[in-house]
């Protein structure tokens, strides 16, 4: 083939790109699962508390209008987990996970970090309120707790944000 001809250049570049594409595809196939695993490595311990032994993957492209959702995870064959950051009484806020089973019932409610007032806001993370949340479905709203209005309002909003994402999936 004439090396100065256009055809030669097109073929050369085409072949080169094809080889590079194959290489990239191959390495991506190896590294993609490891990268996905590393992304949820920090959260995995907490996710396991809700769905023990499930396979988790992080969802990247979710549209959250409330600004409270910090992470969305799929537990394969079991449900969805949403990581919510709410601000109640303490100004630096609190983090919790809310999970919905595939049938729309609450799969779990797990507080990760909080600094609310003992006897008031903290009651939102104690057994009585937790069991109320655990009995909900995606068509409910999270109940308010008198004496812990700020904290439970933030939870109610976060719950609604998670429901909106669950319904939109």
């Amino acid at each position: 083939m004439n090396r100065e001809g256009t055809l030669y250049k097109v073929v050369l570049l085409g072949v080169l790109c094809a080889i590079c594409g194959l290489l990239l595809g191959g390495v991506n196939a190896v590294t993609a699962p490891i990268i996905a695993e590393a992304k949820i490595a920090n959260e995995k311990v907490n996710l396991e508390k809700i769905y023990p032994g499930a396979t988790f993957t992080a969802v990247e492209d979710y549209k959250d209008e409330s600004g409270m959702v910090e992470g969305v995870y799929v537990a394969e064959g079991k449900g969805m987990i949403y990581k919510i950051h709410g601000v109640g009484y303490a100004s630096d806020g609190f983090d919790f996970l809310i999970a919905f089973n595939d049938d729309g019932t609450v799969g779990g409610y797990q507080v990760l970090a909080e600094n609310e007032t003992s006897g008031f806001g903290k009651r939102c993370f104690e057994d009585e309120y937790v069991s109320q949340i655990n009995a909900l479905t995606t068509s409910d709203t999270a109940p308010l707790l008198s004496g812990a209005t700020l904290t439970s309002t933030a939870i109610q909003k976060g719950y609604a944000a998670a429901v909106a994402l669950f319904n939109a999936r």
Partner: peptide, 24 residues
Amino acid sequence: EIHIPVYIVVIATLVTLVGMLMQA
């Protein structure tokens, strides 16, 4: 005429590979 595109394809591929390996 095409040595720059050829080199860039090679270099970009290598960098992407190294990037993926580092990320993993």
